[in-house]
Design a protein around this nucleic acid. Structure first.
Length: 930
RNA sequence: GGGCGAUUAGCUCAGAGGUAGAGCACUACCUUGACACGGUAGGAGUCACUGGUUCGAUUCCAGUAUCGCCCA
């Protein structure tokens, strides 16, 4: 980056604008980092490897605030680790989101009056890739705009050729291990997308439905009093596929009927009455209709009793030929028609309103239909078992969840896990690498058609030839192979993400060797099952030696809107991160998001005014950015063209009180902040730096150091410059993970570093440990307290801020006396004193304020009505008396003295003495005031 | 039905076994030679409730209530 392009003039210049304008600065540094390849690591480089693969956003449009949040957290972590000197890889990418993208495209086609079948598979794919290019481009642009320090040179897409290779290999190996099978089962069928979906993609929704009580006539039997049973159902249309009625074997009302048969109304079919323990005698009439082909529970009953499965619905949700005269009707129309028909026959007993759960398709937003279908499945238990073992690793759970409580959620899901339906009747996705020998089954694919799994069609052919070639030849027919038309669940490819992106299955991949397993996965709790568990299961199948594909899993909450609702596209309550970035800057948005996340993975609520597109939270962060900008501007104006390096380190022997104080605070802050960032307590780290920067450096240090910075004493000025430059530089380094652009920019301005150098690649500050000095910190704290007491007194007595007047500080303690005398000029400036003097005891004729039991401050002002001061003192007295009561009460308790730690008792006694002394002072002052 | 989380200042949220914190908002004053996106000084809370452990609980434990989420 050419120097001329920098917004910062050379150090020492005072030509900076008064406010920070993030837009240009952020774009410039993003470009500079990328052009320099700053985040493109070499696997052979020194430094402990640290790696993160980002959760790839779906290419379904653009990013929302949740992505910005996830990005802010990950980038803070990886930038921090980079500053620790690690060899950091942060790998970006996007997800093809098979079902979601196909839904979008089909909707577009429908709007154009076309369908995917008109287009054909190839043209549809072309269209899908075009969509991917557009949406993916938008997303990548947004990620760049946030300042994500990822390696764009390693960007991946879950449907790119490299990932396809990994997907095919994974499928093959799982198949070889017997962990993939194909079979006809009751699956969740989404009629909207025309595909099977997994259990996870089904969401239970409470709906107001009806419970229909239907009369099923018993097949007549001479001299038997009961001639019918009543069944209750929420789905009358499925009765067309009933193959039994079930009762509880212990139900005395019906026990004697078990084994008899019923004539199924409307269909005329004879179906048996079976006894099954899973029937709840208390629900409805205690009799349930059994439709094994359309209900999971009935399916299980059917299996136990060997009942036939009659599918009465087609895959588009309409009734099929097996539904007799209802064939062709949509399932919801059929429901009405069946009820009407039953009523017409006098078989509808009653209809009750009934609230119940209905499975909905996550994507299609329509009720899912349990349907018998031949699909591919992953046998999950062996994989899950390995994950549970890794979690129980005596040397430490793998992965380690942060916060820990999520590991229970993860474990529970991996216990009693169901097999994973991985085939989808879609086009956009990884085609299943299986070829059917359709010549064996008359040219069609059935459940019985033999198939071969291969890395390529040629490989499948070779296998097919070997097994069926001779027989085919003998039978005089050609071998015909046809690839399975279906694609894999998106999560199958996402599940390989932490290693497929690093080069797996190539055993020699350097990235894999260096950066696998990855260091930490950062994601929301909502995809622990979808993604985290799938990755650990699949990694266990292929790279079991690592136990888990990531050491830590840092689970964060969701971003909620100003009304505490989860932000979502469908609810229309999303907030576009770009709007806030444009208004406040990416650094401000990032800082605001991270600062909100101090707690243990709680959701964060981002305040937002939709009328004005403003956010007080982000605005506060923007103000902080501006404060830093101005602090740096001040430094540049007062460092005399020098840099931290040219000035050299502060020299201990030359330091004044505020120097000792800020450097001690710096030592403390740098180690605390590193500790917090290293343990994912990023919000606390953000707050710590905010306080150090604003309260300590700006409000105190700079104000106390101004006389030296403005003065003529060269030696004193150099010392102050050294401390200021040093503290500021360290602060900028520490802030870099949180506010990368601003800190990079200001760091260049302060250090005068070459454009080819980057703060992003510097080292975390290592301030001299000798500067840590608690006694100086408390000594200086007295100065802060005294200044505040004087200012308070001025405000209460109504002295004009600009009015200078004689001021005294009264303390008998030698160290404090020395402090006051040594800092006379500085304190005078801070409190507006025309003359500042020290006396052990206050002399008469002053207006006095109390710092603590050992110090008072006095203003030489004419006596006046001082209700405000009196009020204040009375309040102080009340407070201190309350404290005395509490402390005295505690000390009077013999158990306290006996059982509490001695240092606590001593502290308590000291506090009591202090409080009593203060109370005395306050009472004295009140008496003086009359 | 099972599990998890939350309940702290007007709002949004930190916090920690030993006298309650921040940001925003609020009040008063101040355009002081970095910053009004600023400064100074203030006001403001029975830490949801009830028990228990403890010398001491807002903090740990149990239960209750309310809200939210996940699983069935």
């Amino acid at each position: 980056m050419p120097e001329a392009a920098s917004p910062q003039p050379a150090p020492g210049s005072d030509a900076l604008p008064k406010t920070y304008d993030p837009a240009g600065t952020e774009a410039r540094w993003q470009a500079a980092w990328e052009q320099a390849g700053a985040f493109h690591p070499d696997p052979a480089a020194p430094g402990q490897p640290f790696s993160v693969v980002i959760p790839p956003p779906n290419v379904t449009g653009s990013l929302h605030m949740g992505h910005a949040f996830n990005t802010a957290l990950i980038d803070t972590i990886v930038r921090f680790q980079r500053l620790q000197g690690k060899n950091v890889l942060c790998l970006p990418g996007t997800d093809h989101a098979s079902i979601a993208v196909q839904t979008i495209l089909e909707k577009q086609l429908k709007a154009e009056g076309a369908s995917k079948d008109d287009l054909g598979r190839d043209a549809f794919f072309e269209r899908a890739w075009a969509w991917k290019a557009e949406s993916g481009g938008t997303i990548v642009g947004q990620l760049r705009r946030l300042g994500y320090s990822v390696d764009w040179g390693r960007e991946r897409f879950t449907l790119d050729p490299g990932l396809n290779k990994a997907v095919v290999e994974a499928f093959l190996r799982l198949h070889e291990q017997g962990l993939i099978y194909r079979g006809e089962y009751l699956v969740n069928w989404c009629p909207a997308s025309g595909s099977a979906v997994s259990d996870l993609e089904v969401e239970m929704k409470e709906v107001e439905g009806s419970l229909w009580h239907l009369r099923y006539p018993l097949t007549p039997l001479a001299d038997h009093p009961i001639d019918h049973l009543v069944v209750a159902t929420t789905r009358p249309e499925t009765m067309l596929g009933d193959t039994a009625v079930a009762v509880n074997p212990a139900d005395p009302r019906y026990a004697h009927l078990v084994g008899r048969s019923i004539t199924l109304p409307l269909m005329g079919r004879q179906i048996p009455i079976v006894a099954d323990e899973h029937v709840d005698p208390a629900f409805g009439t205690g009799c349930v209709k059994v439709t094994p082909a359309h209900d999971p529970n009935d399916f299980a009953i059917g299996q136990r009793h060997g009942l036939p499965q009659i599918t009465v619905m087609a895959k588009d949700g309409s009734m099929n030929e097996a539904a007799g005269r209802f064939a062709g009707l949509d399932r919801f129309e059929a429901r009405k028609a069946v009820v009407a028909a039953m009523e017409a026959e006098g078989l509808l007993v009653k209809t009750e309103p009934h609230r119940h759960s209905v499975p909905y398709s996550d994507r299609g937003k329509v009720p899912v239909e349990p349907l018998l279908s031949t699909q591919w499945f992953v046998r999950t238990e062996p994989l899950a078992a390995r994950c549970r073992t890794a979690l129980d690793n005596p040397a430490g759970a793998e992965p380690r969840f942060v916060p820990e409580r999520w590991s229970k959620v993860y474990r529970d899901w991996l216990t009693d896990i169901r097999d994973w339906c991985i085939s989808r009747q879609l086009w956009w996705g990884h085609r299943i690498p299986a070829w059917f020998v359709v010549s064996e089954t008359g040219g069609v694919i059935t459940e019985a058609t033999p198939y071969f799994v291969g890395r390529s069609e040629a490989e499948a052919w070779a296998k097919a030839e070997a097994q069926f070639g001779a027989a085919s030849l003998a039978a005089g027919r050609d071998l015909v192979l046809e690839q399975d038309p279906d694609v894999l669940d998106t999560w199958f490819s996402s599940g390989l993400w932490p290693f497929s992106t690093l080069g797996w299955p190539d055993p020699a991949a350097a990235d894999l060797a260096t950066w696998y397993p990855t260091s930490v996965l950062v994601t929301g709790f909502d995809i622990i099952f979808f993604w985290v568990a799938r990755m650990t299961m699949l990694a266990g199948a292929f790279l079991p030696e690592a136990r888990a594909p990531f050491g830590d899993v840092y689970i964060h909450g969701l971003v909620r809107d100003e009304n505490n609702r989860k932000m979502s596209k469908s609810a229309g309550n999303g907030i576009d991160p770009l709007l806030l970035i444009e208004r406040y800057g990416a650094d401000a948005l990032r800082f605001a998001l991270v600062r909100e996340v101090a707690g243990a993975g709680q959701d964060i609520r981002l305040d937002y005014d939709r009328k004005t597109d403003t956010s007080a939270t982000v605005e506060a962060a923007r103000n902080f950015a501006n404060k830093l900008f101005n602090a740096t501007r001040f430094a540049l104006m007062n460092l005399g063209g020098e840099t931290p390096a040219s000035l050299g380190e502060p020299v201990l022997a030359e330091l004044e009180s505020e120097d000792r104080w800020i450097l001690s605070r710096l030592v403390r802050t740098s180690s605390q902040c590193a500790e917090l960032c290293g343990s994912y307590r990023l919000g606390e780290a953000a707050k710590l730096l905010y306080e150090f920067a604003w309260n300590d450096l700006c409000d105190q240090y700079i104000e106390w150091a101004k006389p030296r910075l403005f003065g003529d004493d060269q030696a004193a000025r150099t010392t102050a410059r050294r401390v200021l430059a040093h503290s500021l530089e360290a602060l900028l380094v520490m802030l870099h993970p949180l506010m990368p652009h601003l800190s990079e920019d200001l760091w260049h301005a302060v250090t005068g570093a070459e454009a080819s150098e980057f703060l992003a690649l510097q080292r975390w500050p290592q301030p001299n440990q000798q500067w840590l000095d608690p006694s100086h910190e408390s000594a200086f704290q007295f100065g802060i307290d005294a200044v505040r007491a004087i200012r308070n007194l001025r405000a209460l007595s109504g002295v004009k801020p600009a009015e200078k007047l004689p001021i005294g500080i009264h303390t008998p303690t030698a160290a404090r006396r020395d402090f006051v005398i040594a800092n006379q000029g500085k304190i005078s400036r801070l409190v507006g004193a025309s003359e500042l003097h020290w006396e052990a005891e206050p002399t008469a004729g002053q207006l006095l304020g109390i710092v603590d039991s050992d110090a008072q401050v006095g203003l030489s002002v004419p006596q006046q009505s001082l209700d405000a001061l009196r009020e204040r003192l009375q309040k102080d007295l009340a407070k201190v008396e309350k404290e005395i009561a509490g402390l005295a009460g505690r000390l009077a308790n013999p158990n306290f003295a006996g059982k509490a730690p001695p240092e606590v008792v001593a502290e308590c006694q000291a506090n009591l003495a202090e409080a009593r002394a203060q109370a005395e002072l306050v009472r004295g002052r009140l008496l003086d005031l009359g």
